[in-house]
Design a binder for these strands. Structure first.
Lengths: 160, 160
DNA sequence: TAGAGAGCTGGAGCGCACTCCAGGCAAGCG
DNA sequence: CGCTTGCCTGGAGTGCGCTCCAGCTCTCTA
């Protein structure tokens, strides 16, 4: 069962995706330890360690914990956050907007309206893009049909 | 005649889109003149004149005609081509791939199989992306629901 | 105790897709 | 005639999202 066909039931049932199904599909999230090194996280998110550090520098991560020697220790929460970030990125949200969202989350509950607004705007964007993609799909189907018709005809002529 | 050079029109009907509905939606293609200046084309495609010249430099345009003083004169065919390019671009095809496609078109009929392959690969890509976007849409819906539930609850508490 | 390996930092570099600039030419207008 | 407008060229610059580098520390194993 993929992310795609998770049942969208009542208002409060999360799609399985939000629970980091994605990571499991990639390389599996190491289980039940809740303190992951940067390379483990890289492995299970598909991001590079460079990118993970960079995300932190630009304020896209909610304060990552450190070991006594100063190494990063990511939690399951961090992985969930990275899952969301990955989705927003895949759907084309600019990093700057994600940073803004991250800042709002850090600032606490009084920013929830603004966060909702931000996500709703992005949802509209995604909807528009789906429509665009679908319309291009039609064009592609049309053109590919023409090519394959031509090919079939050429093959038939050659056979004759 | 479309971009597809000597279209061996088969059983399929073109989606209206391929006939440059897009441009008409934007600023309208000047009618029936078939010789457009670069700024007219910029106006009706939404591309900048810089971008149009750049497309030509990198080999993404099929030889644009010139006036006696050396200025570009685009034809309806060029606009159709730009329509296709715009769609491929909107759907995330890398410019390098479009250039490759353009080269194949220039090289003539014997490259049709390769062109078909290229477009089919891109179609797969687009399909995958639509699925991705849809799955993120679920996540967004879920999160937005949470936010708006929380907001409604807060408003209710305030009202009480 | 030496070497390998993973992680740390600030900052430089890169690829893509434009975007703009300087300097010049041709046509039209008052 | 000068001025403005629109277009030309090669090449430099920009913004985004990473990606990599140099030089360091810490820990673990032989």
């Amino acid at each position: 069962m993929t992310v795609l066909d998770s049942a969208p039931v009542g208002t409060t049932t999360p799609p399985a995706s939000v629970c980091a199904v994605l990571e499991q599909q990639r390389h599996g999230r190491p289980v039940g330890r809740d303190r992951y090194t940067i390379s483990e996280v890289a492995g299970c998110t598909g991001l590079s360690v460079h990118t993970l550090r960079w995300y932190e520098r630009i304020g896209l991560m909610p304060h990552v914990d450190r070991s006594h020697t100063g190494q990063r220790r990511y939690t399951d929460r961090d992985l969930d956050w990275l899952d969301l970030v990955g989705r927003l990125r895949l759907t084309g949200m600019p990093v700057a907007d994600m940073v803004r969202y991250a800042r709002l989350v850090r600032e606490g509950a009084h920013t929830m309206a603004e966060r909702e607004e931000l996500l709703a705007a992005h949802r509209e964007d995604v909807r528009k893009r789906i429509a665009e993609l679908r319309s291009t799909l039609e064009v592609l189907d049309y053109k590919i049909d023409i090519y394959s018709d031509a090919r079939r005809r050429a093959e038939a002529a050659e056979g004759a």
